[in-house]
């Protein structure tokens, strides 16, 4: 092989490629900031899927019927799978899963704040599937067109698999609303608690989002926080009304001129409080993950040693 001089395209070529809706692939030249920005966003997304196993996983052993139990297991399992796809996408940027997990544990890397709320009743499983997954999907559908190839492909796969998640959640809510007064109250209480955190999932308003402008230019993000949030509200309000749930927002009303729902002010102080580590379950979520990782260390180590032994004995034979 002759050593050719690599023609490194500069930032201009890079941006031109993005502007032309071409995907960036792992071995392409990319600005270091683009790489870091992607690592931050994709790994945060991966961590969210993995930490997201917990609030729902809590109810696997308590699900009210065998069918619900199987559905919930399949859903939580999908979340682990989605975390895996996303870690793999992040790894193409030159960072290992081990390093990513380390960043999660040290707090250097965040996950979706919504998972710091507890899942207190069975209705919460309905609310999470319906609201949290719907919110996630609104965001993820837009990310199927993100500029980084491996991220976009992971999103396509994830969106395909997630379609059942929001439906099963809504189905739980619907079943509760068709049930006894106790069940309807349980469903309404869950909506009351999950509504605002779901709106917060889309992040700060466009004007205040630290990463938005650059991410939009690089097409890492395709639609703005407020834009996605509005779409979510428009969908969810209608879905709530269809089964007799009341959205806990006195300012909510349809705006004919805009063709959208107007909604009340989000409590950003609460958002800040939870994201900075002081939500109801931040400590438990992280402790749970650290513990599982620590308790699995001897298994991972044993695998590596076993593999090395096998390789050696194969070499002996050969």
């Amino acid at each position: 092989m002759d050593k050719r001089v690599a023609l490194v395209p500069g930032e201009q070529t890079f941006q031109a490629r993005i502007d032309a809706e071409e995907k960036i692939e792992p071995k392409d030249w990319m600005p270091e900031k683009y790489r870091q920005n992607l690592i931050r966003q994709i790994s945060q997304h991966a961590h969210s899927e993995v930490i997201g196993e917990q609030p729902e996983g809590n109810w696997i052993t308590r699900a009210p019927s065998l069918e619900r139990k199987a559905i919930l297991m399949a859903k939580v399992q999908d979340e682990a799978g989605h975390g895996l796809y996303l870690y793999a996408a992040t790894e193409t940027l030159g960072i290992t899963r081990e390093e990513l997990i380390d960043r999660l544990h040290t707090g250097a890397s965040k996950y979706a704040s919504i998972f710091n709320y507890p899942s207190l009743t069975w209705a919460d499983i309905g609310a999470i599937g319906w609201l949290v997954d719907s919110a996630a999907i609104v965001n993820q559908v837009s990310l199927q067109n993100t500029s980084y190839g491996p991220y976009a492909r992971a999103m396509v796969r994830i969106c395909k698999e997630e379609s059942f998640h929001q439906r099963q959640g809504y189905n739980i809510m619907m079943t509760l609303m068709n049930g006894s007064q106790v069940q309807r109250d349980m469903a309404q209480d869950a909506l009351d608690r999950w509504w605002w955190p779901s709106l917060m999932m889309f992040g700060p308003h466009d004007g205040e989002s630290a990463h938005s402008a650059q991410s939009m230019k690089w097409k890492i993000k395709r639609r703005s926080n407020d834009d996605l949030r509005q779409q979510f509200v428009d969908q969810a309000v209608q879905q709530a009304e269809a089964i007799g749930l009341v959205v806990p927002d006195p300012d909510l009303q349809w705006d004919d001129a805009r063709g959208h729902y107007d909604f009340g002010a989000i409590d950003w102080e609460e958002f800040e409080r939870v994201i900075s580590g002081n939500g109801p379950c931040n400590r438990q979520r992280l402790a749970h993950h650290k513990r599982a990782h620590r308790e699995g260390a001897w298994v991972r180590e044993a695998m590596a040693v076993h593999e090395a032994k096998q390789r050696l004995s194969n070499e002996d034979v050969a």
Partner: peptide, 22 residues
């Protein structure tokens, strides 16, 4: 087996144990 979900030594195994549990 289902008690393992979110507690396995690594993600691949989390998913695999989930399949057996299912």
């Amino acid at each position: 087996l289902s008690e393992w979900m979110s507690r396995a030594p690594f993600l691949e195994e989390d998913i695999a144990l989930g399949n057996v549990a299912l």
